[in-house]
């Protein structure tokens, strides 16, 4: 099982000029998750439980996945998901219980989900966000769009700096709420 402290930085970026006010994109907001752990599991072998079985195991242990990205092609399956940092030990136990090979698991113990909304199904906004990450060497561990937002997982410690950089390419409302949620919801049983 590979546990990493920092994701791989992004390099070799095309030069991008600072944006004019008129080319910045107006959005509704940005928010940060609490500190999470990021788990990626790949191509289970015959000895390992399937990802469906792993999900069942995590559910039976009341472990929430606030983010999931899953892809399957022929026999190759890759799944990335986020969990509360408090659940990391129990998830590692579940992976062990499901006989996941250490080489097929990658854990990043400190990530945050940056959610930017609305995306308006815009390739330009999505590209601009990814470009900002690449230009500033911020890692992208995973991302998914939802009905209205782009949710992107990066190193937790970079979230504030990333928001500063994104503010150079998007226009936030003047009365924007704090990026960090001031409450936490937990399902007990």
């Amino acid at each position: 099982m590979c546990v990493e402290g920092i994701g791989s930085p992004l390099k070799n970026v095309e030069n991008v000029e600072p944006m004019e006010e008129s080319t910045r994109i107006r959005i509704g907001g940005i928010k940060f998750s609490e500190e999470l752990a990021h788990v990626t599991v790949v191509s289970p072998s015959r000895e390992e439980a399937s990802f469906d079985d792993l999900l069942q195991l995590l559910s039976s242990r009341h472990i929430n996945l606030p983010f999931l990205c899953h892809s399957h092609k022929e026999s190759h399956t890759k799944s990335s998901f986020c969990i509360s940092r408090d659940d990391l030990g129990r998830v590692q136990e579940a992976l062990h219980f499901a006989s996941y090979n250490h080489g097929n698991v990658r854990i990043i113990p400190s990530v945050g989900t940056l959610t930017l909304f609305p995306h308006r199904n815009s390739f330009r906004l999505l590209g601009l966000v990814l470009m900002t990450f690449a230009e500033n060497d911020y890692p992208i561990h995973s991302l998914s769009t939802s009905i209205s937002a782009i949710a992107l997982n990066t190193d937790f410690r970079h979230l504030d700096n990333i928001a500063d950089k994104l503010a150079e390419v998007v226009i936030l409302p003047e009365n924007h709420a704090p990026f960090r949620q001031e409450f936490r919801l937990t399902q007990l049983f």
């Binding site: 992004l10 970026v13 095309e14 330009r124 999505l126 590209g127 601009l128 470009m131 690449a134 230009e135």
Partner: peptide, 11 residues
């Protein structure tokens, strides 16, 4: 390392 390039293509 080519994330910057492909971000531009996405745009």
């Amino acid at each position: 390392q080519r994330t910057g390039y492909w971000s531009g293509r996405l745009m």
